[in-house]
């Protein structure tokens, strides 16, 4: 695969001049073709199904539905509810991960004994598979009877909380935020390490301390990295699924049903291919609004 036809230009000892030394087409082709198919085919099929009457359980429902699926979805309060839940989850988790991510990054950037090990501990949650995270929180910590949290609340004289019945979306948000804080921490920590120490020393000389230093030097320096954290996390958070499946299954009622979970229910539990595809198109549009800005930022970065 790595062999390429011999090229007379080979004799010229220059790298990447006007004419390349080797033919790069066979090197690029596998990746490009695969990703191109991956991009086009499922998307085209989703669009196609979304205007079809197509239910796996009902062979009589065939033919074009045109925009009936969309009309049905858009007038269905379940969709509006799911979009609201999705936005609440994404925004809440983003806020929590940025605040705690900055806190952890600043704390772990400072010198103290055992810092290396402390950093490893802090990023553990990111490497734990989502189903394990969700089940550990659901049972060991948030269980209303035997969970650790209820014991803590009881021992300070407060009533135990039935997390997933009373605050389903917030509880899922707490778990997801916990999973993503290490991601923010890692990126912001890397970014902090490129902060000019002399600039800090100079600011200190001028009498800047603690919060002033943080607000005027550290935070502005982190601004770009925070933007990147927010955009990348948004892409992933729009697809949060396993955490919901193993904790609340979207309930109680529809209280923690997000857009991904609604699509999953419509497709694989109700077998409504057309309706689920219309939901999929809506999810793709939402993600692309964010992706547009993310791709622009990263492409801009490539030029430097």
């Amino acid at each position: 695969m790595l062999l390429s036809p011999k090229n007379p230009a080979l004799a010229r000892p220059v790298v990447a001049e006007d004419e390349p030394l080797i033919n790069t087409t066979p090197l690029m082709a596998p990746s490009v073709v695969l990703l191109f198919i991956w991009m086009i085919v499922p998307l085209a099929m989703t669009l196609w199904f979304s205007v079809q009457r197509y239910n796996l359980l009902d062979p009589t429902s065939v033919g074009f539905a045109w925009f009936d699926n969309y009309e049905f979805l858009l007038t269905d309060p379940a969709l509006l509810n799911a979009i609201k839940n999705t936005i609440a989850l994404v925004v809440g988790v983003l806020a929590a991960t940025v605040v705690f991510g900055v806190a952890c990054a600043v704390a772990l950037d400072a010198q103290f004994p055992g810092r290396g090990i402390a950093r490893l501990f802090c990023i553990i949650p990111f490497f734990v598979m989502p189903t394990v995270s969700a089940l550990v929180w659901k049972n060991l910590l948030m269980n209303p009877v035997n969970g650790l949290f209820s014991w803590v609340l009881k021992s300070v004289g407060l009533p135990a909380i039935d997390w997933f019945s009373n605050y389903p979306l917030s509880s899922i948000g707490i778990i997801v935020a916990w999973q993503w804080i290490p991601f923010a921490t890692l990126i912001l920590l890397t970014s902090l390490q490129s902060l000019d120490r002399e600039q800090i020393e100079a600011a200190r000389m001028d009498g800047a301390r603690g919060w002033t230093l943080f607000w005027n030097i550290t935070l502005p320096h982190l601004y770009r990295s925070i933007t990147i954290v927010v955009m990348i996390e948004t892409i992933f958070l729009l697809s949060v699924f396993a955490e919901i499946l193993v904790t609340t299954s979207g309930g109680p009622g529809e209280a923690s049903t997000t857009l991904p979970f609604l699509i999953y229910k419509t497709a694989l539990l109700d077998y409504d291919v057309g309706g689920a595809s219309a939901g999929g198109v809506i999810a793709i549009i939402l993600a692309n609004i964010v992706a547009f800005f993310l791709v622009r930022t990263i492409a801009h970065n490539l030029e430097r």
Partner: peptide
Amino acid sequence: TKDVLVWMLSTKMMPAVGVLVPIYLM
């Protein structure tokens, strides 16, 4: 090259759930 790289990246932006139905059926 730059366009190809950015395009490759953009294929990651597709939310999995958006293509669940076609992938499942295929």
